[in-house]
Design a binder for these strands. Structure first.
Lengths: 306, 306
DNA sequence: TAAAAATACTCCATAGGTATTTTAT
DNA sequence: ATAAAATACCTATGGAGTATTTTTA
């Protein structure tokens, strides 16, 4: 079996052109170096050096082999260097999965904030429903997931990032609900618009509003908050909207955001990672970055807008 | 110290994603593989894999390291392959030195002939005086030398290629010598034109013609046979010409080639190589190619031309 | 004869194996 | 409770050292 030791000795020999001196440069005895070179020649089935009274000369094969060996040794050098380069906090690649009802509202704030704090960071983002993200996290395809808690799998570690209160989004001209704040379970669930299956917000909306609607105005679930709110503004019904989405989505025409009464229903958004990942510091830094990039949450009352 | 063994084990581990199975693929026990991976991590100062209950996941560092390792292992593979590729006779690079009084007349025949016989051959030619060529040969900068014998250095092996008879080249209108064949030591050495110092033919010419001329018509030695014959054809004197040059040089105007009487003086052209080179077969093939590429030598008498 | 590489041998570090413990699920 | 990796401990291989012989110039 060819070894790096043999290559290092051979390189020394080719440079020194002399067994004794080569042995000195690699700090071994001449017989030790001789033995390794001989074993190498034996293993490769070729004479690599011509032995002369004064110094050695590489054979044609030896010259070819030397070229390749120099490349390999340089690559090994770089490997060791790469491995030793201390990665600071969040230096290098971090693959983050974020659920679709958070991603579009958090990412534009979070990513520049992270880049500012950790210039060396490389971020890879994936947007998918919780189950998909957690599966990828467990497989090692992701390093962290931002999703609504609770997350059950217990080889995972979790940290609460923030509470995200729910509001009701309805058309401006909506007459069914005149007074605010709303009381839960007091809503016309037949007019409730939902995301498609798999989105945790769908289940949370159903939980907040009491039960599954018998028949929805729109049977096909929407694929994003944006679509949902588009539908709302076109008088197709109403929907639950998390606080994080409000600031962005309120810009739509014909949209009215109504808070719930106390205690306000909310979802808990958390950071999730593999317990075995040993990137505790990175995860703490990431969590801090998420909480740090969000402006202080507005009061519920302030969101009652025309 | 990082080893190829560690890299091979790590590659297996990354592929199998499981210590036990990885150990099987490289035919060692699980603890043996574990130990090597741990040592590697220790040496590199980084955690490379996350250990889980079911299988392992590479860390970011581990992924980087794996990429480099795969390159290195592939290069080692190719190195072993390269080394094992049997080079046939005269396949690969052969560096040949030839003296200037032979090169221009032999090379145009020899090189195409060699290419025909050994399509894989790579030839590097150097033209210089014997001493320079022999020094380069000893240093391993050349693999073979074609020069006039004898060559003294005794770490060298020699094989006679052919005998190269001498003729006298003079102007057509030269009146001093009326009869042919010439007798040695019967020449007007004062009119003898010589190559510059260092050329063996210079010394051979002096040996043939008896002694060093007291004063030459041309004090500065010529740098090539071609120059010398140019001078001869311009009535500046006469010179010794080896048979190998005759066919090419006779085309000149006003040139008369006169043979010597028996025994005709001649030089012995031989092939020289390092005894330690272990390329005996290549040298034999090269020597055969040289003798094989030369047309049967013409009779001396046939060269007495107008 | 002398310089250099190969051999002979001895020793020790290290890789590897088996049995067992620890760990995490 | 179980599967997997780490640890303990022993063995064996192989790399290295010193002393010596062989080679060849």
């Amino acid at each position: 079996m060819l070894t790096l030791r043999q290559m290092r000795y051979f390189e020394a020999l080719a440079s020194a052109r002399h067994f004794g001196r080569a042995a000195q440069t690699v700090n071994v005895s001449q017989p030790a170096l001789s033995a390794q070179i001989m074993e190498m020649e034996e293993h490769l089935g070729t004479r690599l050096v011509e032995r002369n009274r004064s110094g050695i000369i590489l054979t044609a094969k030896g010259t070819q082999v030397l070229q390749r060996i120099r490349i390999i040794l340089a690559d090994v050098e770089r490997l060791e260097q790469t491995a030793r380069d201390a990665e600071g906090i969040l230096a290098g690649l971090t693959r983050i999965g974020i659920i679709p009802t958070v991603a579009p509202y958090l990412v534009p704030q979070l990513v520049p904030h992270l880049r500012g704090l950790y210039p060396q960071i490389e971020i890879e983002l994936k947007e998918a429903v919780t189950d998909r993200l957690i599966a990828d996290l467990a497989d090692g395809k992701l390093d962290a997931v931002i999703a609504a808690l609770p997350i059950e799998a217990d080889q995972l570690e979790t940290r609460l990032l923030f509470s995200d209160r729910f509001f009701m989004a309805m058309a401006q001209n909506e007459t069914d609900i005149l007074s605010s704040p709303l009381m839960e379970n007091q809503l016309d669930t037949e007019r409730l618009l939902l995301l498609e299956e798999g989105h945790c917000l769908r289940d949370q909306a159903l939980a907040v509003c009491g039960s599954a609607p018998k028949r929805n105005l729109v049977n096909v679930g929407a694929t994003s908050m944006a679509t949902l709110l588009q539908m709302v503004s076109h008088d197709m019904g109403m929907t639950l909207i998390p606080e994080i989405a409000v600031e962005t989505e309120i810009a739509r025409n014909n949209l009215r955001i109504v808070p719930f009464g106390n205690p306000a229903p909310a979802r808990e958004i958390g950071l999730v990672w593999r317990r075995s990942s040993s990137r505790v510091e990175d995860m703490a830094a990431l969590a801090d970055a998420v909480t740090g990039c969000r402006r202080p949450a507005g009061k519920g009352a302030e969101l009652e807008m025309a």
